[in-house]
Design a binder for these strands. Structure first.
Lengths: 198, 198
DNA sequence: TTCCAAAATGCCACAGTGTGGCGTTTGCTC
DNA sequence: GAGCAAACGCCACACTGTGGCATTTTGGAA
């Protein structure tokens, strides 16, 4: 599961409920009417919250649409933090992602493909996602801070690139069980990609 | 040189002059006062053009700030289109960029470092740049359309990642002559990065 | 030189996003 | 039930980006 904490107080539960309603409604609504062509007010009206409350929960319109992506990387950073780092780092990055994928719940596997399609259709969302990936990469590098800064930085870039490639291959079907296999295949292709001939 | 065409007609020269004034003023003004905290009106007032004319020349506030980046990739795509593709593709990508760097003029080498600093300070600009890189990558892939789609896609991702790493290493000094050497060094590190151990 | 058509510009109004102030409601605690 | 703090809704505002329309400027041709 991503996060299954049960907040004791009623107030926090209520707050979480509207937050979740905003997330769910956003993905479906933007999916139906398009992200760019759907005013934020349409979402607020449907969930029945004021703009003020929305912006207390999310930084931007893009933020709420990309919640599934952020959740994934949050879990990834958590998994990566607790994983044993030995052997080839590329394998560590990969197995951390495989573990992460196992932790995500069914709700996430429903929302994530929808989010990917939103991203594919909206340059603004794509830019936001890439920027978020960059932040995650910086965070990973911070955790590993070693001497081979350049090689480490490159490897992180390569892995995230492989992940995005895997998502592109997964996008048409989006069968949850196939994603790990696709990611493995893409990662095993990395070496031969570097020596590709024209 | 990037583009040194002399438009015959006075009208086009005038238009290019205001366009160039917008570009130059934007980089310096945003550099002084920050991209996010500088209203577009400040730029328009300084160059003495209306908002309407600005948006006929540029798609957005980010667009004008990132002109140097777009110019680079425009030249790169042009160089890459005419280059001989033989041997390791990674070398082809690298030499195309080296040729591109030789083609850029002094004005560009003055604006480009300023632009890089703007990007480093503004997440919005960073997102726009990454998105633009993605479009360039898609264009390169389109030119090469072969059978090994996955390996090709990965290699392109890796090269652009290496380029961004090189820029990060170059950013502190920004000595124009050092960039090719840095890029060569980063590219030669790609192989060992993949086999990095924890 | 003069006149016309096209292009470029400026002005105005509007939609949409995001922020801050401020009063009001709601839930927590005693 | 009373007091308190958190969350909320309403309002006004700044900024970005778009479209309509009148005006000026320029290129070209009579």
């Amino acid at each position: 599961m991503t996060i299954s904490e049960q907040p004791a107080t009623l107030r926090e539960r209520k707050k979480l409920r509207t937050r979740q309603a905003l997330i769910d409604t956003a993905v479906t609504l933007f999916g139906e009417r398009g992200f760019d062509s759907t005013p934020l007010d349409a979402l607020l009206e449907q969930v029945e919250v004021s703009r003020r409350t929305f912006f207390r929960n999310f930084r931007s319109k893009e933020d709420v649409a990309l919640t599934a992506v952020k959740q994934l990387w949050d879990v990834y950073l958590d998994v990566f933090d607790g994983i044993e780092k030995s052997g080839p780092l590329a394998d560590v990055f990969l197995s951390a992602m495989l573990t992460t994928l196992e932790r995500m719940d069914e709700g996430w596997y429903r929302r994530f493909p929808l989010t990917l399609r939103l991203i594919a259709d909206s340059p603004a969302l794509d830019g936001h996602t890439l920027r978020h990936c960059a932040e995650v990469q910086a965070e990973i590098a911070r955790q590993l801070d070693e001497q081979n800064r350049l090689e480490l930085r490159l490897l992180i870039e390569f892995f995230v690139a492989a992940w995005r490639c895997a998502l592109d291959e997964w996008l048409p079907d989006c069968t949850p069980g196939e994603l790990p296999a696709i990611l493995r295949r893409v990662c095993s292709t990395m070496n031969s990609a570097l020596s590709l001939e024209a």
